[in-house]
Design a protein around this nucleic acid. Structure first.
Lengths: 188, 188
DNA sequence: GCAGAACGGTACCGATCGGTTCCGAATAAC
DNA sequence: GTTATTCGGAACCGATCGGTACCGTTCTGC
């Protein structure tokens, strides 16, 4: 547990927001849980909106680092992202993707939250692109977007079905996308 | 515009909840928009929670009916669900799936909202199952679950990318799942 | 050792939250 | 035409929302 108030706020907020939703967690609760004084909070953040922004930025960085690590731990291939997803979906406190959830409870589709979510997903797509290109696939970009769609589908499905089943199903689909020729076999 | 207060409340709430989120819409706003008196609201619903429940039930029924219609209008095959999805994602006020969004902003993963969302998705999966079986596919159940995952992936992707692109991408994947043999070609 | 920053606690603000109660008008049933 | 129901409007409730200001203490840099 860090002694820095700002760090404690970010850490506590990331956890509470993810577990119960951003709107569901008031500043009051956050202060009570983190043990930070009200004044200290507003010394570090202009308001709740800025805290939300900082929390999402932080989560983006951490989550991306976690994914890269876990993918490496699972062999480093593009399919490993689904192993990582399955692993995290097995966790008791899995609640889907923080950015998808944030979009879902954001009122303004043109606000900062959607921008951050897009940024986050683009970064993940770029990682997928790299992983697939390393396998020598010519159409890596299109495949990366398909993989991203599969990951998000598995993530929201895992929210309600619990466990790694959805991720494994997505992995099976991805496997076939990697194996089979893109649309029509090139005529000889 | 229906004259019945209950119907007006359900209709207004469904729209507001979908556009801005359930937590973001207070009873106050809802009453102002629908022109219903405060007392009338609590005559028809025990509280906001019961209204949310009724709205989701209503949406489930309407959405399912809409999907069946639209699928028929697009030829009736299982792939038509992605055409329907693309069509709705083109709309200006498209905000993803109301049930995924409701789950995302629900605090309790074991509460009623998750139960309703599961019920909803199971019904859609059953419809997919039927459509795929009508095509004569032996493993229709597994395919239906894969299609459901693709639909949800396309839906959450369309929230941030706007337009029918994600749905068309999901359709392309689904097409290959239908065409190719499931895992390994049966050895002759 | 001392100055200044960072801290937690508390009182307070207006606004809004979900919810209750009473009232008078409109409407529908018989 | 009278009775019974449904309706919208408004006053009010305690709780909580996000946010501000001031307090005294603790910790740190020099």
């Amino acid at each position: 547990m860090p002694t820095d108030a700002r760090e404690r706020l970010l850490q506590g907020a990331e956890e509470l927001f993810y577990e119960e939703g951003i709107r569901a967690v008031g500043v009051e609760r956050l202060l009570a849980v983190t043990g930070v004084g009200r004044a200290s909070f507003y010394r570090h953040f202009a308001g709740k909106d800025e805290l939300v922004y900082a929390v999402l930025k932080r989560r983006d960085a951490h989550w991306h680092a976690w994914l890269e690590e876990t993918v490496t731990a699972h062999g480093g291939g593009p399919l490993a992202v689904f192993d990582a997803l399955a692993e995290s979906a097995e966790s008791e406190n899995f609640r889907g993707c923080a950015f998808i959830n944030a979009m879902a409870e954001a009122s303004d589709p043109h606000g900062e939250i959607f921008r951050l979510a897009n940024e986050h997903k683009n970064k993940v797509t770029a990682l997928l692109d790299r992983l697939i290109e390393e396998q020598g696939h010519p159409d890596h970009r299109a495949l990366a977007e398909q993989f991203m769609l599969l990951m998000d589908g598995a993530t929201v499905t895992a929210m309600r079905t619990r466990g790694g089943g959805a991720a494994r199903r997505a992995r099976a689909i991805a496997e076939r996308l990697l194996a089979a020729p893109p649309v029509e076999p090139v005529p000889v």
